[in-house]
Design a protein around this nucleic acid. Structure first.
Lengths: 165, 165
DNA sequence: TGCTAATTGACAATCGTTCTCATCTCAAAT
DNA sequence: ATTTGAGATGAGAACGATTGTCAATTAGCA
């Protein structure tokens, strides 16, 4: 059956791994600083979670983080992963990316703000920045006397490779 | 505990009812046409759901639709509501509005496309149109050779009334 | 009016996420 | 180094939204 709610097809063929956006690994010492900065205790679990967030694919679900960390620290519970991700999101150290009704994906908050362009066929995520759009959003909020706190801009479409097929 | 995932506070005071966006009721005969147009059978349940979608608050959750319809037709099951809303969303007759991790809200697809500006304190929803933003989105997609299918633009902030408090 | 596929209601199941609580551990103060 | 207590953890139950299952019902054409 078709799923309309999720903007990504369920039985989709996954995007080629080498196309996934990745980020440079972060120095482990930095992690401790980040955790202390949040006023939290430094634990093995939290370091492992940060390591996972930093090393591989940029946009991961809580489940994916759990599974990866679970490989190294089999005793970890998924509640810990969810809890820490939430804490970090509160402090804006990680950013949630929500695509329709699908599980939330998390990324270490990048220095520069960006939005996402997602392929509904293969799940490819392309990041883009557009300051003009940002400005126009501010303008819209001002016009309605809102104080803007954040926004969600997700574009969905078919990537070049999937169009070709 | 703070909830970061939903972009709306859980224990929020609800928006004043008269501020809720409403739409003009639609002629019942139109409903039958809409249902037939989708290649579906006309049933009391479906008419009641459409009536609910059309009459009151513009943006309603599936649960709210269920409860309203349930008042008139106590035998209705919520599966019927979900099923029909999904069918209509597939056919783009209704549009889903997703705000963070909160339950999806549905509205009869309006003639003119618009996006939403939501108050994270009281849940007030303001609709806005901005053709320039739309154009820029198209431009971004083109720049990455994507064929754009749809987008989600939700702005979140504090409405004037909540700022005043 | 009778037939048949579409639709329904009841409720179980699922999925992502959060809560509970007894146990454990980091790190500040000794 | 040891104590100690707030904070963190793991296991699993609970949760809320949504979807699936299936036998019983119904719309609408012949």
């Amino acid at each position: 059956m078709e799923n309309i709610v999720p903007h990504l097809a369920k039985g989709r063929k996954p995007v080629e791994p080498e196309k996934l956006i990745r980020r440079e690994p972060v120095d482990p010492a930095t992690f401790k600083r980040m955790i202390r900065q949040m006023g939290l205790k430094v634990t093995q679990q939290r370091l492992a979670i940060l390591e996972t967030l930093s090393g591989g694919r940029a946009h991961v679900t809580a489940q994916e983080v759990f599974e990866t960390v679970n490989g190294k620290y089999p005793e970890i519970g998924f509640a810990t992963v969810y809890r820490f991700l939430r804490k970090m999101a509160e402090q804006k150290l990680v950013t949630e990316v929500r695509m329709g009704g699908l599980p939330a994906r998390y990324e270490l908050t990048p220095r520069r703000h960006h939005d996402h362009l997602t392929c509904t066929q293969c799940g490819l995520i392309v990041e883009f920045e557009n300051q003009i759009i940002e400005n126009l959003q501010e303008q819209v909020a001002r016009a309605h006397n809102f104080r803007l706190t954040h926004h969600v801009l997700e574009l969905y479409g078919i990537c070049p490779r999937c169009q070709a097929e």
